[in-house]
């Protein structure tokens, strides 16, 4: 599943864009969050991997802004808490706790990718959500 944030600006509010995309592409979308405000609306959806590219294009062609958020994912079975990644992060996502565990505050990650090739266990990967 690919997670994307759809931003519907001003004039798009009155059109049934989401339903149109669902019918056109024959895809089941998972709506995780939706909100409407004066300037437009936002919707966080999940798209099955195989449809992702197609569905994103469809929304874009209808004037919707599509934000793909990226972050890192750490494979806890591979990570040995060596800390090789620790000094590479420019925004302090990676920290060492008092018991020497290496912990990641993924929400702060800007997906710069600097830590990824520093890991000797190849435990870190970039993910799209």
């Amino acid at each position: 599943m690919v997670k994307v944030l759809l931003k519907f600006h001003g004039g798009l509010m009155n059109e049934p864009i989401t339903s149109t995309v669902i019918l056109e592409k024959g895809v089941k979308l998972n709506i995780l969050k939706a909100s409407i405000h004066e300037k437009g609306g936002e919707m966080l959806i999940e798209i099955p991997d195989v449809f992702a590219e197609n569905v994103i294009e469809a929304f874009k062609s209808k004037g919707v802004e599509v934000v793909i958020k990226r972050t890192i994912s750490v494979d806890s079975n591979r990570c040995i808490h060596c800390g090789a990644c620790l000094s590479l992060c420019p925004v302090n996502v990676i920290k060492m706790s008092s018991d020497y565990s290496i912990i990641f505050d993924e929400d702060k990650c800007v997906a710069c990718g600097l830590c990824i090739d520093a890991c000797p266990m190849k435990a870190i990967s970039l993910v799209v959500f």
């Binding site: 040995i80 808490h81 060596c82 800390g83 990644c85 060492m96």
Partner: peptide, 23 residues
Amino acid sequence: SGKIEVLGKTVKVSPLSSLKGAV
């Protein structure tokens, strides 16, 4: 501690050995 001074500049430092593993 995670930070050291190198030529007057504070820099972040990474252990390469697992301290957690050592314990």
